[in-house]
């Protein structure tokens, strides 16, 4: 589905991306993490053809981005930018969602149905003015107009920036639903809690190269790679790493609770056995 082969890219000021090779299959939920300036946004812009590789190839659904227009790639790729104000260009929420739908489909019935569903899923008033919404709501509207099209691949550049916890969870829930229906999600994220909760695979980027690629839980154990990329795992995982033996598989509150109870039970049994030994001795 997404195939990058020996991709190099530079803006004319030294190489931003160096020898990137990776393959992302249909239905995967991938997070790209790394420090600011590591090349995450550049990598995503290469995926939808906004940037063309200096060398190497980027192939999306058998289409080479060097020979395919971004507007043609947009039929299968939805891209959410960090700044929603660059995307919103209509006077009402309804028109904004319709804009994306009309670019993608011709069937009026389908367009109306998708519009209705999107408005109800995101809880928007169709007639409200997008520019009167809060920053978080405008970001959700930008996302809604992408999700309405149900793209095969969804690329999200920091989708939860500016959201409170509830908004972030609600939005990520909607993205996860789309992923469950088979869409591939590629997300840049600085919130490691969100990465742990939603991503199945993580690419760690540092100084333009992928320094680690694997399952989310496996990556959060690679302290050295994360340190190199200036990324800290979620606090719960950091605590589990400090506690060591018996806490290797702890990645959630429930898992932490079970691990603590297990450790306490073991120690209680050990103390009991020691006390019994002393009494009989």
């Amino acid at each position: 589905m997404v195939n990058l082969q020996n991709v190099f890219f530079d803006y004319g000021e030294g190489e931003t991306l160096k020898n990137i090779s990776c393959r992302i299959d249909k239905g995967e939920f991938v997070a790209i993490v790394g420090a600011n300036g590591a090349g995450k946004t550049t990598l995503c812009k290469l995926l939808n053809g906004l940037l063309k590789p200096s060398s190497g190839s980027v192939v999306i659904n058998s289409m080479d981005t060097r020979t395919t227009k971004t507007s043609a790639l947009a039929k299968s790729i939805g891209f959410l930018f960090q700044n929603p104000d660059r995307q919103i260009c209509k006077n009402t929420v309804r028109e904004e969602i319709l804009f994306g739908l009309e670019l993608a489909f011709k069937d009026k019935g389908l367009i109306e149905e998708r519009l209705k569903n999107t408005l109800s899923t995101f809880g928007f008033q169709g007639d409200s003015n997008p520019f009167n919404l809060s920053r978080g709501e405008r970001q959700r509207l930008a996302l809604a107009s992408l999700i309405a099209v149900e793209p095969e691949i969804l690329i999200l550049d920091e989708p939860t920036t500016g959201f409170d916890y509830m908004e972030a969870m609600k939005t990520m829930g909607t993205i996860k639903e789309l992923n469950d229906k088979g869409a591939t999600v590629i997300m840049i994220c600085h919130d490691m809690e969100v990465v742990l909760d939603f991503a199945e695979r993580v690419l760690v980027l540092a100084e333009g190269t992928i320094i680690a690629d694997g399952q989310t839980r496996e990556i959060f154990r690679k302290e050295e790679a994360l340190e190199q990329a200036s990324v800290l795992p979620p606090q719960l995982v950091q605590l589990a790493l400090r506690l060591g033996e018996g806490f290797e598989d702890v990645f959630s509150v429930d898992e932490m609770a079970s691990a603590i109870i297990n450790r306490m039970n073991k120690e209680r049994t050990f103390e009991h056995e020691r006390f019994s030994g002393l009494c009989t001795g």
Partner: peptide
């Protein structure tokens, strides 16, 4: 803004100048 709109499928990368003007005008709003 042009990048964001092209990513949505607006044909800003077209070579037809009249089509391009038609697509660029709504971008004045953002």
């Amino acid at each position: 803004i042009i990048e964001a709109q092209a990513s949505r499928g607006v044909e800003l990368d077209t070579r037809n100048i009249f089509k391009k003007i038609k697509f660029v005008l709504p971008l004045c709003v953002p």
